[in-house]
């Protein structure tokens, strides 16, 4: 192999085939395992998990308190029946920190240096979260950015931006929509959007 085997003119699809063949040849990956992981990303791991966590927090004050104290242990204990979300999709992470929105505080999550995102509860990040526009602006002009995305915050709402620059992951606990008291966890989870848990929406 040459020092740099990159073929700049090849399409990304061809380059992917080449790097996969090399990694398989060197014994680092098995293609069948790659197939299975792609399928899991596409079908099993998504924001539905986070939505259930939020709905549980809305209905169970003790869980909410534990969740805000230390996210992953609370989630593992509460969702033990469904494996506690204990797969290794983001296992190098040190902590999951959950920040609650209130009438006077709005939280927003970004990673300016790469695109760190709470995979364990929200799945893989959407394209806009990874975009230079979002990464560059969320820390400098969060109010204007949110306004462009349809969320006009009153001046007396404090904005807290969480730039996930290390292995701590952040998720927003949105406020429960009005007139939803008495609904069950599954019904409530249907109200929770991915973008509300990143902080670019309020419910």
């Amino acid at each position: 192999m040459t020092a740099d085997h990159r073929h700049e003119s090849d399409s990304p699809a061809l380059r992917t085939e080449a790097i996969e063949a090399l990694l398989v040849e060197k014994g680092l990956v098995r293609s069948a395992a790659v197939d299975a992981l792609v399928e899991r990303y596409e079908q099993d791991i998504g924001p539905l998990r986070g939505a259930r966590v939020v709905a549980e927090a809305w209905t169970d004050p003790a869980f909410r308190a534990r969740l805000l104290q230390d996210g992953m242990p609370a989630i593992r204990a509460a969702f033990r029946d469904s494996g506690g979300f204990g797969d290794n999709t983001d296992s190098h992470v040190a902590r999951l920190v959950v920040k609650e929105n209130t009438d006077t505080v709005h939280n927003l999550v970004v990673c300016t240096l790469c695109s760190c995102y709470p995979w364990a509860v929200l799945g893989l990040p959407p394209a806009w979260y990874k975009s230079p526009a979002y990464r560059s602006r969320a820390v400098r002009e969060p109010r204007r950015l949110l306004g462009e995305l349809g969320l006009d915050l009153s001046p007396d709402v404090e904005v807290r931006v969480w730039d996930a620059s290390a292995e701590v992951r952040y998720m927003v606990l949105p406020q429960q929509p009005e007139d939803t008291d008495g609904l069950g966890v599954e019904e409530l989870a249907a109200f929770v959007t991915r973008d509300s848990m990143i902080g670019v929406e309020r419910l």
């Binding site: 394209a127 975009s131 526009a133 560059s136 730039d163």
Partner: peptide, 12 residues
């Protein structure tokens, strides 16, 4: 990228 100008609107 934090703080850079010039990348336009967020395409959500």
């Amino acid at each position: 990228m934090g703080g850079m100008h010039g990348f336009g609107a967020v395409d959500r």
